[in-house]
């Protein structure tokens, strides 16, 4: 008898699942109404510590997509440019930096319709 019941149960196997899910809260969120939050380690955008950077070129050399660009005039005056549209936010620059100057944080860049907005001057030191 129990065997027959088990056999019949396989015809409506998902019924308990769908009823329990029906009465619980939905997993998806209504996007604009509920903001999605990023974890603390989320690699959102590239930032820089102005004081620490010495313009050593390590991050530019190791960047896999050439998203960083260093314009160097002398030892004191240089600027670091970040191309957000090329960047894959892999975090290699943070790893390569020996001076804890460049890092990624979990703030998120809004998209833009204009390419110019993606070219960010991270740092400007001295006279250029």
């Amino acid at each position: 008898m129990k065997k027959i019941l088990n056999h019949l149960r396989t015809f409506i196997y998902l019924l308990p699942n769908i009823t329990s899910v029906f009465f619980s809260k939905a997993e998806t969120i209504k996007y604009p109404q509920e903001p999605s939050n990023y974890s603390s380690g989320f690699r959102g955008s590239v930032r820089i510590n102005q004081q620490n950077c010495v313009g050593c070129n390590a991050c530019v050399r190791d960047c896999p997509v050439s998203a960083l660009q260093l314009i160097k005039v002398s030892k004191e005056s240089f600027s670091l440019i970040h191309q957000q549209d090329l960047c894959t936010y892999c975090g290699q620059c943070q790893l390569s930096c020996k001076f804890n100057a460049i890092y990624l944080d979990n703030t998120y860049n809004q998209p833009s319709a204009d390419r110019k907005n993606f070219r960010v001057v991270l740092l400007k030191k001295g006279k250029l």
């Binding site: 990023y38 380690g41 989320f42 936010y89």
Partner: peptide, 21 residues
């Protein structure tokens, strides 16, 4: 995985010589 590595799909955990996080 996002909590550990900072990326949902491209984790970038590995580096030559160990892991980053």
């Amino acid at each position: 995985m996002e909590e550990i590595s900072g990326g949902r799909v491209s984790h970038a955990v590995n580096t030559i010589g160990g892991v980053r996080n």
